[in-house]
Amino acid sequence: MQNIEEINKIIKENLAVMLYFSAPTCNVCHALKPKLLEAIDENFKEFKIVSVDISIEQEIAANFSVFTIPTVLIFLDAKEFLRKSRHMSVDEVIKEIKRPYNVMIS
C-alpha cells in the first residue's frame, strides 16, 4: 500500500509516471492493464508505473480527482499531461504520449 506523499515523491523524482487506477471488481481494468503495461514497457523505457486499487486507497483516488475506473494519469516532468478514463484504447494512449515523451528524453 502507498500513500499520497509516496506517490507525489515518485511523480517528482521520475521523468515519466503512469498512475493506473482500478479495483478488483472491474473487469475492464483487468483486461486493459496487461496490454497497457506491455505497450508502455515496449515504447517508453523511462516510465515508472504505479497501480492504485481504489477499493483500498480511496483517499489517493480522491486526491487525484479519480472517480471512475479504469483511469490512467500520465505525468511528464512532474506535470499531469494526460488523463484517460473508462473507454480508452492502448494505441490511443501510446500515440498521445509518444511525441512529448520523445522530445522530453532526447
Rank of each mutant, 00 (worst) to 15 (best):
N43M: 05
F75A: 11
N27H: 13
P24S: 15
H87Y: 11
L32R: 03
H87M: 13
N63F: 14
A39P: 00
F75G: 09
D41A: 15
D53F: 01
N43C: 05
V93S: 08
E92G: 14
S65D: 03
M1L: 06
N63P: 00
T71M: 09
E5W: 03
A16H: 05
F44N: 08
I10D: 06
I10Y: 10
H87F: 15
K33Y: 12
I7H: 08
F21P: 01
E5K: 11
K84F: 15
A78G: 09
L76C: 07
E5A: 15
N3A: 14
N43S: 13
L36K: 02
N3I: 01
E46T: 10
K9A: 14
E92L: 08
F81E: 04
S89Y: 07
K33N: 12
D91Q: 10
V17R: 04
I56R: 10
E57Q: 12
F75I: 07
E13F: 03
E38L: 08
A23K: 01
A23P: 02
F81D: 03
Q2T: 04
I74C: 06
F75H: 10
K35S: 14
D77C: 13
V90H: 02
Y20S: 11
L76I: 10
A31L: 06
H30R: 09
A78R: 05
